[in-house]
Design a protein around this nucleic acid. Sequence first.
RNA 1: GGCGGCGUAGCUCAGCUGGUCAGAGCGGGGAUCUCAUAAGUCCCAGGUCGGAGGUUCGAGUCCUCCCGCCGCCA
Length: 380
Amino acid sequence: MLVKLPNGQEQRVSTESNRPVEWFSEENYLFELSKLREKLRDWLKSGPVIRPLRHYNLVKSWLDQELIDLSISRPRARLSWGIPVPGDSSQTIYVWLDALLNYMTVAKHSQSKMNIWPPSVHVIGKDILKFHGIYWPAFLLAAGLEPPKSLLVHGHWLVDDQKMSKTTGNVVSPQSCINLVTATGLRYFLMHEGVPASDGNFSMKRMVRIANSDLADGIGNLVSRCCGKSLNPLQTRLGVSPSSFESCGTPGSDLLSLLERTPDIVHDEYQKWNFYKGIDQVMALVRGANGFFQTMEPWKLKKEGQLDQLNATMAVTLETARVVGTLLQPIVPSYSERLLDKLGVPQENRSWDFARLRWTTTETALGSQQAVLFPRIKFD
RNA sequence: GGCGGCGUAGCUCAGCUGGUCAGAGCGGGGAUCUCAUAAGUCCCAGGUCGGAGGUUCGAGUCCUCCCGCCGCCA
């Protein structure tokens, strides 16, 4: 864009960096991107390659036009650091070509267990869509290699609807967020509030509120209610059977219904990268469990000596907590680990197969850890 | 200029394939409980579904125009 200098002259500057720009010409090697348009189109059509759909459409519209060949080298005279062009040491490979190969280097060679090229999903920010939706797949296709099977393109975090910038002074430091709410709290907030197709609005206040409400209060308190020695002196988790729910009447059958349908819905939302919707479903289940517990009033059942119903109530609630912990593993792994540890769930029983109600007669000892999964954060 | 996306309660969103003229969470107000991370539960208030017109028995949902925001191309 054109800006006016103090001396009255006008200067063109970059719209992003505000640094002066000028015309010049030089010789470079070019990558024949123009010859790859059809291959890129074929890749785009091969499935839900780019999501959300708006970004897929954007790349599609770029491929509706001719592609211009891409400069991929610079004269060594002004770019001495880097990989020399094979057979012509007067030119250096431009960094934005070879840098992308780091994805492949890590994926293919770091550990034998992880030879996973092409990746099933590559997560990127929307600002680098052209590189990852056009150039990178083109380089790979030209080399006879497979591009990623899909790209998940997410929006940006704004602050009060404004881009973060040093100039505006509204930059949010991830480390300061972690210091305040822990990595778990930050992750939870980002996944809870992140709608892939649109930019999010970041707020420290809102982050604390959401982390507290869900991780400390909703789930953390529920687990505390069940695991406390007051209601659970033997510190065990009893098995659940259909009669566990039946003996709790309507509240039991209502919770059973919720518990049965939630995992599939969550799975479908996760598959579509709609983590925020999946989290909504999980939290609805948590609220259902708290409501069930409140209705059953196990502290009264204990006083009255109704041990069968007390046991059923505890078993049902703890089974629900187990499912919740399993469902939330992709969202908040270490929090879920603590939860599942507290419930005495073996490591081999934490995969997705166990992210649903399971009938069992097995009695499991609770972990001896402190039951505070997520301390409430003081703020304001 | 052309094309595309978005606009639903204070905030974040769902609903968007026409049918209880709208829901959830957070926030706010009130009540209640004490097993529990002062948590839980219940109740209430909050909505011109950007605006106008149209189609239809019926529109937040379909069509047209306008307003605002964002993006791509030129």
